[in-house]
Design a binder for these strands. Structure first.
Length: 784
DNA sequence: AGGTCCCGCCAAAGC
DNA sequence: GCTTTGGCGGGACCT
């Protein structure tokens, strides 16, 4: 077996085959205390793919053109390592069984692993520059190593590097997956397949997620987007970077460097008192985005770790103690490794008085033309110091998570020679008057709901940059909710007050009776026509402002970049999707009298805090919910005639209001005006997720199902972007956690420490314990 | 010796 | 209470 493996490796990989080595070693050692990772490696091979995944992978394989080889590998596959592999995870056995049952899957997996090296090699050439000096060395080393100890070298540290691991990971998926594919990723599986600890996968995935190369769906589940959204994301990051004034900081930093010790560790910062917000504030994901931002706004596109670390430390309000600095740098290395694997940066060194400093140079795109936005934003080089206008913009558009802008402010001050009062005071103080804090806080009380197609929304006055709490910027695409065909309903998520909710509006224009079945099929004739008309009309407008629109939408990324960006990318599909709901149309054609006659209201506690208002035009049984997406309405609900709701406060108003009502960015068709929504308590996130679903937004039923099932399988609602909601799911999912306040949930993507404001402000630094201490604890089990 | 960064402890967050 | 995430930093490895 081993022999086979080795042979295979040799044949397929010019480089050192990462996974195998460890394994071999393991065998040698007999699995001593070796790293689990290594041990794991062996198992990897046995790791089966999830059935759902298999389908996808077949696609991938084809796409990658590795198919031919697959067969080849197939016979070899038999790596029995499986045998020795004891359940690495609780599900290992099951996986093994599955694997056994699905040789194809296994083969595919095998192939992926085996060819990974090749793929990597292939990829590299594509971007020669990608290789950093170090990388090159690394590569050579690998080759050497491989040759030398063909079979038994102990996996060198490098072979276990995050960068390499990342490459392996990346090699598993296509850079540009078909937009119709929904590639599901199971962290567990990947970890097993790659033979590493999950912990390591988290590191990679977090960074990838920060660039929207993957998106989190649920616990342990991610969706692979590939590089399709990369550019958009980068563009957005660039914009944010500028808004954040990173370019200024970079300059300052450079100056400081040149000027001397400057504010080296600016001990002034280091107080520690403000242990950065919550955990996520320091997340690798956020840090990664910021790191990337630095590159994107840097004139030289080169960032030294030192600079990055300092800037980030400052921003996070972490104390600037040396240890903090070191920790930051360590993280940056992690991030850099992943980015390097992505070919986005390469390691370089910059010379300074005191020798050279490690730095990274950006290799990715810096100028983005695909967005009309670029027009508004001057190229990096031309970007003038954030000034008035710029600032304003930044302020307005800044996402809560980025609201912190402490640095910006600080920078501004410096730049404006404003009093250099302690930055700290400005930075991130929960209660600080800075706009962002307000925004953040107001979330619960404000909602921003968008109905219908995004285009309309776009049209709507809701400026992306609106200072609205971006808590929720759910552009609801019914298509997403009701994966297929046009649904005569519209689902609205109302992140109102403390508990946002979802409202389902049912238009009774059509024969209620039909609706159930009807909407399964494409919109009714009349609707079709109307839609078409409207679409055409829209098209004009849309086309005209499409760019801007998309940008706007992207702007919403501030609220939730992940979701939004995804939308931006798919906007095309989504918007033009034939499944646009009737309501949507009504929306477009304001005259459309398709007023929902009833609403379905699902008690807050009925569906995990989701409230529904659904038109009662139809029999409960025929809730017009597409069968395929919502086979059963497994949730308590009450049908209420519109009239019955008339006395409820009008939380959602017509389109017109939308525009003006600062409290409600609500885009509703005029016809909806009279509508009243019972805003219940539904944790934020639902809409968001829905909104985000376009990402995975299946255009095909299967995909829809896939997505839905995935969600259903592991609904989760961490914070922000991770919320997984699926109203389309038959079973009541728990989209979000009540614990999480809308506010916290809102800060998804671009989040900064201070963002949490009061909410998390008091986050204890309790966790600050040195390893030594930890060890002590171990020695003396925490009495607690 | 300084730069890198693997590794895994363990606490927070999610179920 | 268990699992998943992921912050964190000691210390090994590399240059």
């Amino acid at each position: 077996m081993e022999v086979e493996c080795l042979a295979l490796k040799d044949l397929t990989s010019p480089r050192k085959s990462f996974p195998m080595d460890p394994e071999e070693e393991e065998e040698e050692d007999g699995g001593q205390s070796e790293q689990k990772e290594n041990i794991c490696t062996g198992r990897r091979k046995s790791t089966p793919l999830k059935s759902a995944e298999s389908a996808i992978h077949s696609l991938l394989i084809n796409r990658k053109g590795a198919t031919p080889d697959l067969a080849h590998i197939t016979h070899i596959t038999p790596i029995k390592h499986t045998a020795l592999a004891e359940p690495w995870t609780p599900t290992a056995n099951l996986k093994m069984l599955i694997s056994a049952a699905s040789p194809d899957m296994r083969d595919r997996e095998m192939k992926k692993v085996l060819f990974r090296p090749i793929e990597n090699e292939k990829d590299k050439p594509a971007s020669p520059d990608t290789v950093t000096e170090d990388t090159e060395v690394e590569d050579s080393c690998q080759f050497e190593a491989m040759e030398e100890d063909d079979a038994e070298k102990k996996p060198s540290r490098k072979q276990k590097s995050l960068g390499l691991l990342c490459q392996k990971f990346l090699a598993l998926y296509p850079d540009y997956p078909s937009p119709h594919d929904t590639i599901w990723i199971s962290l567990d599986e990947v970890a097993t397949n790659l033979g590493v600890e999950r912990r390591r996968i988290y590191d990679i995935v977090n960074v990838l997620e920060s660039l929207m190369i993957v998106g989190r769906i649920a616990k342990n589940s991610y969706t692979w987007y590939g590089r399709q959204r990369l550019e958009v994301t980068l563009e957005e990051l660039q914009r944010r970077g500028r808004q954040q004034g990173y370019h200024l900081q970079m300059e300052l930093s450079a100056e400081a460097r040149g000027a001397g010790p400057g504010r080296e560790d600016d001990g002034g910062e280091g107080d520690g008192g403000q242990a950065a917000g919550n955990r996520k504030d320091k997340s690798l994901r956020i840090m990664s985005q910021k790191f990337v931002m630095l590159f994107l706004v840097s004139k030289t596109q080169t960032v030294t770790l030192d600079t990055a670390a300092k800037i980030l430390i400052e921003e996070s309000q972490d104390s600037s103690s040396h240890s903090k600095y070191k920790t930051k740098v360590r993280r940056l290395y992690d991030i850099a490794n992943v980015l390097t694997s992505l070919g986005l940066i390469k390691k370089v060194h910059v010379r300074e008085e005191r020798g050279r400093k490690p730095a990274f140079k950006w290799l990715g795109p810096v100028e983005f033309n695909n967005s009309g936005n670029s027009a508004a934003i001057p190229p990096p080089e031309a970007t003038p110091p954030m000034a008035g206008q710029d600032l304003r913009k930044a302020k307005m558009a800044r996402h809560a998570s980025f609201n912190i802008t402490p640095t910006s402010i600080a920078v501004q001050r410096q730049v404006n020679s404003a009093p250099s009062s302690p930055r700290r005071e400005l930075i991130g103080l929960p209660n600080h008057p800075v706009d962002y804090s307000r925004k953040t806080t107001g979330n619960s009380a404000v909602c921003r709901l968008q109905f219908g197609n995004s285009t309309d929304n776009q049209t709507s006055p809701l400026p992306p940059s609106s200072a609205q709490p971006t808590l929720l910027a759910p552009t609801l695409y019914p298509e997403n909710l009701f994966s297929s065909s046009s649904s005569p309903h519209c689902l609205a998520y109302l992140p109102s007050l403390s508990q946002p909710s979802v409202v389902m509006l049912y238009r009774a224009t059509e024969t209620p009776d039909h609706i159930p079945e009807g909407h399964r099929s494409p919109t009714s004739e009349s609707e079709e026509g109307r839609k078409r008309r409207r679409e055409e009309r829209e098209e004009e407008e849309t086309v005209a402002k499409k760019k801007g629109t998309e940008l706007e939408e992207c702007d919403k990324m501030r609220d939730d970049p992940q979701r939004e960006a995804a939308q931006c990318l798919q906007s095309g599909n989504t918007r033009t999707s034939p499944s646009r709901p009737a309501l949507d149309e009504g929306l477009a054609s304001g005259s459309e009298p398709a007023q929902p006659s009833h609403y379905l209201y699902v008690p807050n506690n009925g569906l995990n805090s989701l409230n529904f208002l659904l038109s009662a035009g139809q029999q409960p049984a025929g809730l017009a919910l597409p069968h395929n997406s919502v086979p059963t309405l497994a949730m308590p609900y009450v049908l209420l005639p519109s009239a019955a709701l008339s006395h409820y406060p009008l939380l959602a108003s017509s389109l017109q209001q939308t525009v003006s009502d600062p409290k409600l960015s609500f885009t509703l068709p005029t016809m909806m005006s009279p509508a009243h929504f019972m805003v219940g308590a539904a944790p934020y996130g639902l809409a968001a997720e829905i909104n985000r679903s376009p990402v995975t937004s299946p255009s095909t039923p299967e995909q829809s199902k896939l997505y839905v099932s995935a969600v259903a399988a592991a609904p989760q609602s961490p914070s922000g972007p991770r919320h997984t909601v699926s109203i389309t799911t038959p079973e009541p999912l728990t989209p979000h956690t009540p614990k999480e306040t809308p506010a916290s949930a809102s800060k998804a993507f671009f989040q900064t420490p201070c963002t949490l404001g009061g909410v998390v402000s008091a986050t204890p630094a309790s966790r600050k314990r040195g390893s030594a201490q930890r060890r002590l604890d171990i020695g003396h089990p925490p009495s607690s």
